[in-house]
């Protein structure tokens, strides 16, 4: 079984995003870009399936800028992906467009399982995986904290609002990762060196003949209302007084 892992290049989670002065978006100039953290978890899960012998090949794919080849796709290969597909686009493609492109890649690659992140930490959309499942008419196991696959089916434990839920899906299927699915390995320097020789197929959006024109226009991006830092109290007694003042404590 082949496993396909779609990954997104995003502003590193440790960097505090800054809104551009003209309100047109987030300033990304010269800032550290990384694999979306949920996608690292997806790669790790795929690689573990290969190490267990359940998967035969791990292919990563991204829709994004050419630079992705030498940063996030390299990291992905260093973590254990066998090869990569870069679908170049200078413009940001929306989740629906990405899902449509991925559906084409699935047609070509015929994976048994596609593992995506549950959400990209830049747009916080949380929709690409579910959309891809819809377009392919495949089952979906979203927000996974445990994945047990054999050749026919996959059992997915999902993090839901009240706790955990387990579903059984017919393969081929879509899985999206939650934080506690696994702890991704580091891409070590020797592995990064070795990864450079693993193939990257370069495509463009036009190669797939799909209309990815955006449906949503961003009119404005603004900073959220700022909270004022408050006061520090000196003792528990003072805190108790405050709580009483707010009517929280009797």
């Amino acid at each position: 079984m082949k496993v396909l892992v779609p990954v997104k290049r995003v502003l590193d989670y440790n960097v505090k995003p800054r809104v551009k002065a003209d309100g047109s978006g987030i300033d990304l100039a010269n800032l550290k870009m990384s694999l979306n953290p949920f996608d690292e978890i997806a790669i790790e899960e795929a690689v573990r399936l290969k190490e267990k012998g359940t998967a035969t090949e791990v292919v990563v794919v991204t829709v994004g800028v050419p630079k992705a080849e030498t940063d996030v796709l390299l990291t992905a290969r260093a973590m254990g992906a066998d090869r990569a597909i870069l679908i170049q686009s200078e413009e940001e493609v929306e989740p629906l467009g990405v899902a449509k492109l991925l559906a084409k890649v699935v047609e070509e690659e015929a994976p048994g399982l596609v593992i995506l992140g549950k959400q990209a930490i830049d747009d916080d959309s949380n929709q690409t995986g579910q959309m891809l499942a819809a377009l392919l008419n495949w089952p979906q196991g979203t927000f996974a904290s445990k994945v047990e696959a054999d050749g026919e089916r996959v059992k997915v434990t999902r993090e839901v609002d009240g706790g955990l839920e387990t579903v059984d899906l017919k393969l081929p299927a879509i899985v999206t990762t939650d934080l506690r699915l696994n702890e991704p390995r580091y891409a070590t320097l020797p592995n990064i060196m070795k990864a450079k020789s693993k193939p990257v197929a370069k495509k463009t959006v036009a190669d797939y003949g799909i209309d990815v024109a955006p449906r949503i226009k961003t009119l404005k991006v603004a900073e959220p209302g700022k909270r004022q830092a408050g006061v520090k109290v000196g003792s528990v007694d003072e805190l108790v007084e405050r709580l009483k003042g707010m009517g929280v404590a009797k």
Binding site: L11, K16, P17, V19, I26, I121, D122, D123, D124, T218, L219, K220, V221, A222, E223, P224
Partner: peptide
Amino acid sequence: IYAGNAIAT
């Protein structure tokens, strides 16, 4: 967007 560090219209 961005974990609520920005609000998009």
